[in-house]
Design a protein around this nucleic acid. Structure first.
Lengths: 218, 218
DNA sequence: AACTACTAACTTTCCGGTCAGTTATTTCCG
DNA sequence: CGGAAATAACTGACCGGAAAGTTAGTAGTT
C-alpha cells in the first residue's frame, strides 16, 4: 500500500485551500450542507480532518468559501455579456443563450444553486451575498437591456424585470432538473438546445415589428 | 399560567397526524430536512416529542408524509387542467397560467419544492415519487397538448417537451425566488402577473399564423 | 536541529429515538 | 347517577451514536 520510501503525507500549504474548497463543493453539492461530513471532505481533499482546521475555522466558513468561489467566474461571464450588448436585443439574447447554455454544461453551478436554495433559511447572509453579488447583477443587467429596447420601441410593453426572469428561467430550471430528477430516472433535457429554442421563442414573442419564424431553428 | 381546572393536555388522537404534518411542513420548509428538529416540530404541533412517535415511526416517515400531502391537491389541479384542454392551445395556456398563478400564491408548494430539490441527493426515492406522481404528469400533459397543437399546425416546430418546460419555468422559478431571495431583501415578483405576462409572450412566440400583440395585456 | 504542516485519537455537543410513568378519558359497576 | 377501575394518549427525562471541533504528538522540510 505504502512504498518504503513513500512519505505518508506531504507539506503543501499553498495548494490546500483550493483543494479543500473543490472537494467541499462536490460533497456539499451531493449531500447538502448538513449531511456533508467533514471527514469525507478531508478524505476527498487528500488530507485528514484535523488539517481542515488549519485552513478554516468552522464548517460554515468552508461553506462560505465554496459559495464565494462559485460566484467569481460567473461574475466575469456576466460582465463580459454586459460589455458586449450595445446592439439590438436579439443579438444580446442569442449571446446570453449561448453563454449560459455552455456555462451550465461545464461549471458545477447546479450543485451550488441547489445548496443556496436549500440552505437559504439557515444561512440568510449567504443567500444575500449570492443574490447581491451575482443574481441581482445578472437579472439587473438583462432588465436594463430589455428596458432600453422597450424605449427604442424594439420590444413590446410589459414589466422588463419579469421579461428578464422569463428569459433565464428555463435554463436555470433545466439545471435544477438535471441535478434533481435525472439521477432518479427522469428524461434529461439537452440544455444548450433548450436555451437556443427558448431564446428563439422569446424573440418571436417579445420583439416588435419582426416577422415570426415559422420553424424553430436547429 | 395553568388554570386550576385546565388540563395540561388533551387526548385528540384523530386530529394529531394532520397537525403534525402541517407543523412539519413549516419547519422543513424553513430549515431543510437535516436542520429541522423534531423538538420544534412537536412544539409547533402543540405536543411533546414523544408523541410524534405515536403517529410516525421515524423522522423520515414524517418527511414522506409532508411530501405526499403536498402532492395530493396538485394532482387534482393537474387532472382538472387536462380535462379542460380540448380547445386550441392558447386557451389551455391561459388556463394553466391562471391556475398555476393562483396555486403558487396560496399553497405552501414553494417550501416543499425547496426541500425536494435540496434533499434529492439524500432521498432519491423521494425525488422519484415527486417526479413520477407530480412533475412528470404535469410536464407530460402539457407536452402532449403542445405536440397535438403542432400536429394541427397550430404551433411552430421544435421539441414539445422543451416548450412545456419553457412555459412553466418562470412560475416555478418565481416561487423559488420568493422562498430564497425575498426574505433577504430581494424585490419580489408579482407571481400571477408574471404568469400572465409570460403566457402572452409565449403565445406570441409559439402560435403560428396569429397576429402578434403589440401591447402586453394587463 | 529547528520548524511547522500534518495526523489521529480524543472530547464535546447535539439530536433522533426510547420508555417508564402520568393524566385525561371511557367504561363499568354499585 | 356517581365513583372507581381500566384504558391509552401523552409527557419528559434519558440513551446512544454520529459528527463537529480540539490537541498532543509525529514526521516531512529547510
Amino acid at each position: 500500500m505504502l512504498e518504503p520510501g513513500e512519505p505518508k503525507f506531504r507539506r503543501r500549504k499553498a495548494a490546500r485551500p483550493g483543494e479543500i474548497v473543490e472537494a467541499a463543493m462536490a460533497v456539499f453539492a451531493e449531500r447538502g450542507y448538513a449531511a456533508a461530513g467533514l471527514e469525507e471532505i478531508a478524505r476527498r481533499a487528500g488530507i485528514s480532518k484535523g488539517s481542515l482546521y488549519l485552513y478554516f475555522e468552522t464548517k460554515e466558513e468552508i461553506f462560505h468559501a465554496v459559495v464565494a468561489q462559485a460566484i467569481g467566474p460567473n461574475i466575469q461571464a456576466i460582465r463580459a455579456m454586459i460589455a458586449a450588448h450595445p446592439g439590438p436585443l436579439e443579438e444580446l439574447l442569442r449571446l446570453v443563450a449561448e453563454r449560459v447554455g455552455k456555462l451550465i454544461e461545464t461549471l458545477p453551478v447546479g450543485g451550488v444553486l441547489k445548496m443556496v436554495i436549500g440552505e437559504a433559511g439557515n444561512f440568510p447572509q449567504l443567500a444575500r451575498v449570492w443574490h447581491d453579488d451575482l443574481v441581482a447583477h445578472a437579472l439587473g443587467a438583462l432588465t436594463d437591456a430589455i428596458r432600453a429596447a422597450q424605449q427604442r420601441g424594439e420590444v413590446r410593453s410589459g414589466d422588463p424585470r419579469a421579461y428578464a426572469l422569463e428569459v433565464i428561467a428555463p435554463m436555470l430550471l433545466g439545471v435544477i432538473w438535471r441535478e434533481t430528477f435525472v439521477p432518479v430516472g427522469a428524461e434529461p433535457f439537452d440544455l444548450p438546445a433548450l436555451a437556443h429554442q427558448h431564446i428563439e421563442t422569446m424573440i418571436d414573442g417579445l420583439v416588435a415589428g419582426r416577422p415570426k419564424n415559422r420553424e424553430a431553428a436547429t
